[in-house]
Design a protein around this nucleic acid. Structure first.
Length: 817
DNA sequence: ACATACCGGGG
DNA sequence: GTGTACGGTATGT
């Protein structure tokens, strides 16, 4: 018997041939050793709530369930709450995870069964909930050393009957290793994992380790460069480097979707089994989304977290590493021409060194992004009780749900089920009156102040006790403002004040904790942990409203959503009215934010208004400054039927452009179209010269007409997502791909097909040509389908019609412009 | 009008 | 892994 203290970092389970599962907790001991703990005490389980008083009878029937390949091991009658009402439930333990489905099915057939709950939570996740174990927090374990499990390649393997989390100490000094790969690509073609080798892999760790592995020797290589013989050796060294460095976290940027899947494919080619801590690299593919998991090492794809969670508040133009690093770290990628990577590699010149430096820099940026966001991730781990691996891939709704699940357990609440597909469909078809949107008057504005309620919805939920558990037929105290239903009927919703609802209770705790954290931050302004804690609490609180109306939610409540927005509208309208009263020009408002054009007023006056207004609000509510923007353009969306949606671009005081709701720059647009949109926004927002922007577009259009624009700028790229034969609808890229195959050019699933639209009539695909063969392009197509659509709505705002852009004849009706 | 296919991130 | 994104846009039928 040994006792040991360790930080659980990752969880998994191992099943034997019969399907019996044992939980495995991977982690670090206090003195930095790798450990794997097998918790043999845990059995898959779920609740059955009886329909009537025949609970004993139901229990007896459940206990008898025993078939060849599944059985009930044990059951207990327990006191719990379900949606805040006390219930007697039967807690059923199954022999193995895969038995759950069959047992549940059998029990559902019993007359006495009313509800089956918590049978839809993954085994590992349910373990953490049931045992109330928070990853990254110190645990104590008493057990036996399993000597025969040398294969796990950790320092200790412990078999135990109990893992206790009796401490609060956090795992605070992880070894973090970031990596990035560079891939060979012939000129003008995007690399393909079946054809193009990995030529270099860069590593960067938080304790200063730097290395670039590559397999073509060149002179005067930097110290960090290490040469290997070939791609196969590169794969081996990749694996060795990771195993030798032995990181707690391995980090990449889009490594779920690119680096790891690519590595896996290349390794397979050489029949190398990539094992880390003796566990193979697993790539899970769901549709287009892949995730890469290394059992025992937490793989953080920092891109996922930035895109899913951080992105919302950052308002980034796009999520490319270069852009994100610039915004978050103030650092740049190295400037190399990736289109030449294949050429340089083939030449074998010392220019390869530039690519090595580029490679290393990308790994460093991924590392630094991770280190910067790690405090926030750590705080979220504690709120949702999931390992870092899961936390960095969560969506907003999942953050809320997992936090609710954790709190449910602590409050003896049985967790509701995930909705079935049919229920989801029904939920999706029902709409309700959403947030108040003050339609922006499309236009160009100067000196814009943006204020928003940081905790409008959460505080409404708490203040009015809004919850699926408090929804009531009669007015007992909390009556919502008027709500207009789909049918047109006007009603008010009621929430009982008698008992605090489950979600209001959870939220109240979150909000009061955040207030305490903010108090502490006033004294200790630069405390990164407190900042991260405040951020994590804010994230959970703010996402809760959306959760009520999210069709996949366990605690779904449409009536709650309706009521929250109804109350929300009444508050934001108050802000709008009072801003107008004070003589401010309100240009836009959506949900919980308000955009004010300062016009002849000063920033100070706006801040005074804010301060005054805040004094009139209930204590938990606060209108905050989101930002000041010297210039902004508001554009109306094409389909105005469903209300004006957000679509605007702002330039902030640091001359950075924030674009919201515009078509993002995509690969299937020509380079020219992307460039034109970007440049037009820049001229308008940074230079404030609409005439210049108009002239710029006119010049481009004339150049296109005169065929002065290089054909390379006209290339449209589209990827083949499936095999050529399986296309029902053949787009231009499929047609071109066929032409390429005829010419013996190697084209496969995943190939990015480049084409140019040539002159002529009829379908686009009939005119699509391989760029190298195309002599000229269809000017009208590019003007009408690429250039004009990319800027049309921007110019619409400025009072130019689409026709003017094309013809050059101004019909500008001077009005407000 | 409706259906189908692609974008993102990554080289 | 006790699962299967999403919202928007272009092209073809």
């Amino acid at each position: 018997m040994v006792t040991i203290q360790f930080y659980p970092l990752d969880i998994g389970h191992e099943t034997d041939e019969s399907g019996k599962a044992v939980i495995q907790l991977f982690g670090r001991t206090v003195d930095g050793k790798n450990i794997c703990v097998f918790d043999e005490s845990y059995l898959p389980n779920f609740y059955v709530i009886p329909k009537n008083n025949k609970i004993e009878e139901l229990k007896r029937r459940i206990d008898k369930i025993k078939k060849e390949d599944y059985k009930v091991v044990e059951s207990k009658i327990v006191d719990r709450n379900y949606l805040r009402e006390p219930v007697k439930a039967i807690l059923v333990f199954a022999d193995k995870p895969i038995s759950i489905k069959s047992i549940v099915e059998e029990i559902k057939g019993f007359d006495e069964t009313y509800l089956v709950k918590e049978s839809d939570i993954p085994f590992d996740k349910k373990y953490l909930i049931d045992k109330e174990i928070t990853p990254n927090i110190l645990c104590y374990v008493e057990g036996e050393v399993l000597l025969e499990r040398q294969d796990l390649d950790v320092d200790f393997v412990i078999k135990t009957k109990e893992v206790k989390q009796i401490y609060t100490e956090e795992f605070s000094e992880p070894k973090v290793l970031a990596f990035d790969i560079e891939v060979y690509a012939p000129k003008g073609r995007y690399p393909h994992e079946n054809k193009d080798p990995i030529i270099m892999i860069g590593f960067a760790s938080n304790d200063g380790f730097r290395k670039v592995l590559t397999w073509k020797k060149y002179g005067n290589a930097e110290d960090y460069v290490e040469f290997v013989d070939d791609e196969k050796k590169l794969m081996w060294e990749f694996k060795n480097t990771i195993n030798k460095y032995n990181p707690d976290y391995i980090v990449g940027y889009f490594s779920d979707g690119f680096d790891f899947p690519y590595i896996k494919t290349r390794a397979k080619k050489y029949q190398i089994n990539l094992k880390f801590n003796n566990h193979s690299l697993r790539i899970n593919k769901r549709g287009n989304i892949s995730t890469a998991k290394l059992k025992g090492i937490s793989h953080i794809d920092i891109f996922k977290f930035i895109k899913n969670i951080m992105g919302g508040s950052l308002k980034l133009e796009d999520y490319s590493l270069g852009n994100v690093a610039k915004e978050l770290l103030g650092k740049e990628k190295h400037d190399v021409d990736l289109n030449r990577i294949g050429v340089v590699w083939d030449n074998g010149s010392k220019d390869i060194g530039k690519y090595c430096a580029y490679n290393l820099q990308d790994a460093i940026l991924a590392l630094e992004l991770c280190m910067k966001l790690l405090p926030s991730l750590d705080e979220l781990v504690k709120l949702v009780n999931l390992p870092l691996y899961d936390v960095c891939r969560l969506s907003y709704s999942k953050i809320v749900e997992k936090h609710l699940m954790k709190r449910a357990k602590e409050m003896s609440e049985i967790i509701p089920n995930r909705p079935e597909q049919g229920v989801i469909s029904t939920r999706m078809t029902h709409t309700y009156e959403g947030a108040f949107v003050f339609k922006p008057e499309a236009g160009l504005y100067e000196n814009i102040s943006v204020f928003d309620f940081q905790s409008l919805y959460p505080s409404i939920v708490v203040a009015h006790n809004i919850c699926v558990t408090t929804l009531s037929d009669k007015n007992e105290g909390h009556e919502s403002p008027e709500i207009i239903l789909e049918s047109g009927e006007k009603i008010r919703r009621h929430f009982s004040p008698k008992k605090e609802g489950f979600i209001p209770a959870v939220l109240r705790e979150i909000i009061t904790r955040r207030i305490r954290v903010k108090e502490m931050l006033k004294i200790d302004r630069d405390n990164k942990v407190l900042q991260a804690r405040s951020y994590a609490l804010k994230t959970v609180a703010n996402a809760t409203y959306g959760y009520f109306g999210f069709f996949g939610a366990r605690w779904y409540c449409r009536e709650c959503s309706e009521s929250i927005t109804a109350w929300g509208r009444s508050y934001i309208l108050k802000v709008i009215e009072s801003a107008k009263d004070q003589g401010f020009k309100v240009i836009y408002s959506d949900t919980d934010s308000i955009f004010i054009a300062l016009e002849n007023k000063t920033k100070e006056e706006a801040l005074n208004f804010l301060e005054k207004f805040n004094q009139s609000l209930p204590s938990l509510m606060e209108l905050d400054v989101e930002g000041f923007y010297p210039k902004g353009i508001f554009v109306s969306k094409k389909s105005e039927s469903s209300g004006a949606k957000k679509k605007y671009a702002l330039v902030d005081e640091k001359d950075r452009i924030k674009v919201v709701g515009f078509e993002t720059i995509r690969r299937d647009w020509s380079y020219l179209a992307k460039e034109v949109q970007r440049k037009v926004l820049n001229i308008i927002l940074k230079e404030g010269d609409t005439e210049k922007a108009y002239d710029y577009v006119r010049e481009i259009i004339e150049n296109i007409k005169d065929k002065k624009v290089d054909i390379n700028n006209m290339i449209i790229q589209t990827q083949l997502k499936k095999s050529i034969e399986s296309y029902q609808v053949e787009g231009p890229h499929v047609f071109v791909a066929k032409k390429m195959i005829e010419q013996g050019i190697d084209v496969d699933v995943g190939s990015v097909i480049r084409y140019v639209v040539a002159e002529g009539k009829g379908r686009v695909r009939d005119r699509a040509e391989i760029p190298e063969e195309a002599k000229t392009y269809d000017a009208d197509y590019y003007i009408n389908n690429q250039i004009v659509p990319s800027v049309e709505r921007i110019f619409d705002v400025l009072g130019y019609k689409k026709e003017e852009l094309i013809s050059g004849k101004k019909q500008k009706t001077l009005g407000e412009f």
